[in-house]
Amino acid sequence: MTGHPTPIRRVSAAAGILLVLSVSAPARAEPADRPEANRKDGRHSDRNGAQQPGTDDGKKDGGKKDGGEKDVDTEHLFGFTEGADAGEKGEQEAVVDTVTRIGKRTGGPGSSTYRVLDTRFAYQFNPIDKLSIEFSAFGTLRRQRNVLDLDDKSYGTFDGASLEVKYQFLKGSKEQPLGLALEVRPRFTRILPVEGQGADIFDIESLLQLDVQLVPDRLWYGSNISFEPAAGRRRGGGSGYRSSTFLWSNALVARVGESTYLGPEIRYLRGYDGTFLNQLESEALTVGPALHHRFTEKIWLTVAYAGQVWGRDADPALAGRALGLNQFERHHVRVKFGMEF
């Protein structure tokens, strides 16, 4: 072995070089691979070194976009029909709501006037999610002259107060389009709504509210079913007063602008003598447009018109006369302005 040292040394040197190369090659390749597999920003480089967006960033951006969209508040969307939305905990709202009622049968020769403006000033708050409580005060302006079976009157006065409690069972959205709520509205009023005489009347309206998002973010349907019994006594030693009203309303509105909604509304009303739908006095069908516009996210306006297109009165003396004007009017106009805070 001492006679052949050179080949052994050469083989040992070659083996050592190969071992060093085999260990150092992966170590040198690792930095080049690391940006592809381990970059924390979710990006990778193309062959020219330009950074390209990774899938993680795309998901993140998409989530922000979806999360930024807010469902349309349907509560005031439909004109005379009320939407099912009730709001979230901590929300507050102030509303001025005026309904103008115009037109009755003429009581004799000459011109006839029947015009009543009922204005409600309301404050609403949400103590918890899906529950709203609203306090309202009412005022009325009235002018009636030469109207069948009614005395001539012209005045303005305070017309009582109400409490409205609403609970939302279902919240409509793109994924679940049905909204459903129940609202109860006890009210004390000082004026008979048709005759205009002074009285002390208590009524309580129960209102089932439903809305459906037919086309996501484009088309909505709203419907209400209402029962409202009333009882009290006329002032000045007058007789007792008992009445009740049944209402079924339907509305269809579409988004016609970024913050503007428009569509038709149809309502069917029945007025009774007696607190439990005892004796039919009048029925009427009204049709008209409803417009809702949001000036900002917190300030909005709703305008609606309802004209009586069919109706009848049960009084035999009015048999054959068009429309149901004993308990209802020819025209209704609603202007509702609100501010959320």
Rank of each mutant, 00 (worst) to 15 (best):
G3E: 14
P7F: 04
S12W: 02
S12K: 06
A14F: 10
A14Q: 13
A15F: 08
G16P: 02
I17K: 12
L21K: 01
R28I: 12
E30R: 10
E30S: 09
E36V: 14
R39S: 15
R47E: 09
N48T: 10
A50S: 13
Q51C: 08
T55D: 08
G62T: 09
G63V: 09
K65A: 14
G68T: 05
K70V: 12
D73G: 03
D73A: 07
F80Y: 11
G83E: 04
A84D: 05
A86Y: 04
V96S: 11
G107A: 09
S112M: 07
S112A: 13
R120L: 05
R120P: 00
F125A: 07
D129G: 05
S132V: 01
E134M: 09
S136G: 12
S136P: 01
T140C: 00
N146T: 10
L148V: 07
L150N: 07
S154Q: 13
S154G: 12
G160W: 01
G160I: 04
E164K: 13
Y167D: 08
F169R: 05
F169H: 08
S173C: 08
P177Y: 06
G179S: 10
L180F: 14
A181W: 02
R190Q: 12
P193G: 09
G196N: 05
Q197C: 00
D200S: 15
V212Y: 15
V212S: 04
V215I: 15
L219S: 10
Y221N: 03
R233Q: 14
G236C: 07
S239W: 00
G240F: 06
G240L: 06
Y241S: 08
S243D: 14
S243E: 14
S244L: 04
F246T: 10
G257S: 10
E258P: 09
Y261E: 00
E265S: 13
N278I: 00
Q279N: 14
E283C: 00
A284K: 02
G288P: 03
H293W: 14
F295S: 07
T296G: 10
K298N: 14
P316W: 05
A322Q: 13
A322I: 04
H331Q: 14
V335M: 13
E340G: 12
